[in-house]
């Protein structure tokens, strides 16, 4: 089995291992979204107006949760030394780790987001677009978040530092993703925000592994 595939499978196994990490992330997503009706009132018209926006904000927060551990465990147990030292390039290894992180957390979150939006009163006709936007949003957030996680390695309270680093970069996908869904629900053209979101996600996939690799090299030295 190729080394990168082995790394991807190991990361997935670790994410889904004891403790069921992604389940906690999903529960957090549901919990944050459920707070909204309590905060603004359960009146359906008022809720439906903010449903997609609230779902995307909750998605952004939920995807932050497990990022901290993305490189930290390897940094602590010395695995990161060996990932840097040998095997495929660190760029490819970082990308494989980020894809595994997205498969374990971003993918289930994206599949849940139409349900969350519908729970808050968004129309089911929006569900496919919400799912696609959430998939792309999640990809962008995971890769950018991975770069933040690598930069925060070795810092005390790294989790908090990570949030401060990446949250500003989460703004574009949130704006574009919820913007596409809003446009569709108002009968406006929705393809261009979706295409911009796809471009942002692709740029994150291509560029963030460079930052992850450089930050990991710096962390082990």
């Amino acid at each position: 089995m190729s080394a990168l595939l082995a790394l991807f499978r190991r990361e997935l196994a670790l994410a889904w291992g004891r403790g069921g990490g992604p389940l906690n992330t999903l529960a957090f997503f549901v919990g944050t979204a459920a707070l909204l009706p309590l905060a603004v009132g359960a009146e359906p018209r008022r809720l439906a107006a903010v449903a997609t926006g609230a779902a995307f904000a909750a998605l952004a927060l939920a995807s932050l949760l497990s990022l901290e551990r993305m490189f930290e465990r390897d940094f602590e147990d010395g695995g990161l030394d060996l990932l840097v030292l040998a095997g495929p390039s660190l760029y490819a290894a970082s990308a494989a780790k980020a894809f595994a992180q997205w498969t374990a957390n971003g993918l289930p979150l994206a599949l849940l987001s139409p349900v969350i939006a519908a729970m808050l009163g968004a129309s089911w006709t929006l569900a496919p677009l919400i799912a696609v936007s959430a998939l792309l949003t999640g990809l962008a957030m995971t890769f950018i978040g991975g770069a933040g996680a690598a930069l925060a390695l070795g810092a005390r309270r790294g989790g908090l530092l990570l949030v401060v680093i990446v949250l500003p970069l989460y703004a574009p996908p949130v704006i574009l993703g919820s913007g596409a869904v809003e446009a569709l629900s108002n009968g406006l053209p929705w393809t261009s925000p979706l295409l911009f979101l796809a471009a942002y996600a692709l740029a994150a996939i291509a560029l963030a592994p460079f930052a992850m690799a450089a930050a990991c090299r710096n962390a082990v030295s």
Binding site: A13, L14, E76, G78, G79, L82
Partner: peptide
């Protein structure tokens, strides 16, 4: 080259 030290890269839960 192999590097083997105290930090062995082994995940305890696996």
């Amino acid at each position: 080259l192999h590097l083997a030290g105290h930090h062995d890269g082994l995940k305890t839960q696996r």
